[in-house]
Amino acid sequence: MDKIQLGNTGITVSKICFGSLTMTPFQANLSVEKGAYLIKYAYEKGINFLDTAEIYDNYSYIREGINGISREKYVLSTKSYAYTKELAQKSLEKALREIGTDYIDIFLLHEQESEYTVKGHYEAIEYFLKAKDQGKIRAIGISTHRVAGAKALLKYKELDIIHPLVNMAGIGIHDGTVFDMLNVLEQLYNMGKGIYSMKALGGGHLINRSREAINFVKNIPFIHSIAIGMQSCDEIDANIQLIDNNEIDINIENNIRKKNRRLIVADYCIACGRCVERCKQNGIEIIDGKATPNSNCILCGYCATVCPEFCIKVI
C-alpha cells in the first residue's frame, strides 16, 4: 500500500487508516485477541496508521496489536475531550501507559465544533504543545463533524492535523454540505495541514455503494489518508483492493455481504425524535428516552441522515 506524508508533519502514513472503534464493545465487541490480530493483519498488508480515542476504551487492543512491530514504523492517533491542563495530562498519560509507548504520534481534540470550542480547549492545547516539545507527541489537531470546526484550523496555525467527516452523501455533517467541507479542507491542505478523513461509508450507510463511496474520497487530492472502520480480514482486504485497484475479489465481496447487519443507537442519543419523523417505515421509535429500532426497520439508514448527534449506525 502506498504511503504519504501528512502535510508538513513529517509523519508518513498509509492511504488507509485503521478505524478501530468498530472492534470495540460499542460495535463488533471483538475480544482483545481478535482485535489485536486484525491490527497485525492490516499492518502486514501495508496499513501502518490507526485511529482511536480515549472514549473508545480500546487501548488494550492496540497495545497487543502493535506488540512486535517496530514503534517508529507505526503511526497512532488518539483523541480526547480534555479542556484543561490537568485533563490533558491525564489523557496523555493514560494513552502512553495503556498502549505501552513513549509517545503518541497524533493527539487530537475530539469533536471540535468551531473556533470557539477550540478556544475553550486552549489550556489543553497548551499542555499538548509542551508535550510535543518534550517528544511525547509528534503532531496536534482536531477531529470534527462540522464545517465550522474545519474553519477553526485556518486561525489556529499551531495545530497540525484535522480529522474531518467526509463522505459523498454528506451524512453526518452538521452545518453544511460535503462540498462546503471540501472547500475548507483544500485551504487547509494548501497551508500544509495533515488531513485524514472519517466516515467514508457514512457510518455503514453507504456499504452497498462502497466502490462509489470509497472512490469519491480516494479521488480527493487534498485528503492524505482515509480512516475506515474494519471488523474482519475480509473487510481489510476489500478496502485495500478498493484503494489500490478499484475492485474487490468476488469471494471477499460475497463474504462481506453475508454479514448480518443491524442498526445500533449510541447511548448518547438525546431522543430528539428527528429519526422517528424521518423514517417512512415506522422502523424506529423513542423508548425510555432513547431512539430504538423495531421489527419494521429495513436498515436503509435514512434515519441517520437527520441525527444531529450522529449516533445511529448500521454495523
Score class of each variant (00 low, 15 high):
148 A>D: 13
211 R>Q: 13
199 K>S: 10
102 D>M: 03
92 L>C: 13
234 D>K: 06
294 N>H: 08
145 H>F: 14
16 I>R: 02
281 Q>L: 05
22 T>K: 01
28 A>K: 11
128 F>Y: 08
119 K>S: 07
164 P>Q: 13
242 L>C: 04
91 S>W: 04
311 C>I: 03
257 R>P: 05
107 F>D: 14
263 L>R: 01
199 K>N: 02
263 L>I: 06
260 N>W: 05
209 R>Y: 15
30 L>W: 07
52 T>F: 06
258 K>Q: 10
35 G>Y: 08
10 G>Q: 07
2 D>N: 12
212 E>V: 11
208 N>C: 05
106 I>D: 02
80 S>T: 07
62 I>Y: 01
280 K>Q: 09
73 K>N: 11
142 I>S: 02
204 G>Y: 01
224 H>Y: 12
152 A>M: 07
25 P>I: 10
70 S>W: 02
171 I>L: 06
57 D>P: 00
174 H>C: 04
34 K>I: 15
120 G>T: 02
161 I>W: 00
17 C>E: 03
39 I>M: 13
129 L>M: 11
113 E>I: 08
271 A>L: 04
297 C>D: 09
42 A>W: 00
57 D>C: 09
129 L>A: 06
233 C>L: 06
103 Y>C: 15
52 T>C: 09
157 K>A: 06
29 N>I: 07
76 L>C: 10
203 G>D: 05
166 V>P: 01
295 S>R: 05
110 H>Y: 15
74 Y>P: 12
56 Y>F: 07
41 Y>H: 10
174 H>F: 13
136 K>P: 14
136 K>T: 14
315 I>R: 01
190 N>L: 12
162 I>Y: 09
7 G>W: 00
203 G>N: 08
251 N>H: 12
114 S>P: 07
128 F>T: 09
85 K>L: 11
231 Q>I: 13
58 N>C: 15
216 F>Q: 00
170 G>C: 08
127 Y>T: 12
20 S>M: 12
137 I>W: 06
81 Y>D: 08
12 T>P: 00
197 S>A: 12
100 G>W: 06
147 V>G: 01
102 D>K: 04
73 K>R: 05
254 N>I: 10
111 E>V: 02
91 S>E: 14
271 A>M: 02
81 Y>I: 06
